[in-house]
Amino acid sequence: MAKSQETYNKKEKEKKRLKKRQEKEKKREERKAAPKRSAEEMFSYVDEHGQLTDTPPDPSKKIVIEAEDIEIGVPKRPEGEEVITTRFGRVDFFNDSKGYGFIKEKDTNEKFFVHINGTVEEINEGDKVSFELEKGPKGMNAVDVKKASF
């Protein structure tokens, strides 16, 4: 006589499926039996403090904003304001044979990658340098690197 093909694990999985199906059916019946909510009950509003509430806002507290006053994007700089692009730092590591290294910025102690093609003159480890930043494939790269005294 052959053994039954249903194992304990199969029986347990089938029980779980059946229980889940019954729970789903029960929830469906409850939703059908529940009274329908009106659209007004489903709305939520945002008050002047940014909190969600179920009461509509007070029309007396309404602030009118002109469309021309809304700026999208980066605001324009005033005419006289100049952006400082030159940074100063020290060569933290530089490998002459491979042609790359890292510069540690003086103010923020951030490290930036530098390639031999981004240098104006020959640099070595420990040199004080001035440089500019350029977006590279893996982050910001130092370019236009020159020796400096600061």
Rank of each mutant, 00 (worst) to 15 (best):
A2I: 07
A2L: 07
A2W: 01
E6N: 09
Y8S: 10
K10G: 06
K10Y: 04
K13G: 04
E14P: 00
K15D: 08
K15I: 11
K16R: 14
R17H: 08
L18E: 14
L18Q: 14
L18I: 12
K19E: 15
K19I: 10
K19N: 12
K19M: 09
K19H: 09
K20H: 13
K24R: 15
E25Y: 08
E25D: 12
R28T: 10
E29G: 00
R31W: 04
K32P: 00
A34D: 07
A34K: 11
K36G: 03
K36C: 04
R37Y: 07
S38W: 03
A39Q: 10
E40A: 14
V46Q: 14
G50H: 04
L52Y: 08
T53S: 04
D54A: 06
T55R: 08
P57H: 03
P57M: 03
D58P: 01
S60V: 08
I63N: 02
V64F: 10
V64I: 13
V64G: 01
I65E: 07
I65Y: 11
A67T: 14
E68G: 05
E68A: 14
E71D: 03
V74K: 13
E82C: 06
I84P: 00
T85W: 05
T86I: 15
F88N: 09
F88Q: 11
G89N: 06
D92L: 10
D92E: 11
F93V: 08
N95E: 09
D96Y: 02
S97Y: 06
S97L: 12
K98T: 10
K98G: 02
Y100I: 00
G101N: 02
I103V: 11
I103L: 04
K104D: 06
E105S: 06
K106F: 14
D107M: 13
E110T: 15
F113W: 13
V114F: 06
V114D: 03
V114A: 09
I116F: 11
N117Q: 12
T119H: 00
V120A: 09
I123N: 02
I123F: 01
I123V: 10
N124K: 14
G126R: 01
G126C: 01
D127K: 02
K128F: 14
K128S: 12
K128H: 13
S130F: 05
S130C: 12
S130L: 05
F131Q: 03
E132V: 09
E134Y: 04
G136I: 01
G139K: 01
N141L: 03
D144N: 15
K147T: 07
K147A: 03
A148R: 02
S149T: 10
F150C: 01
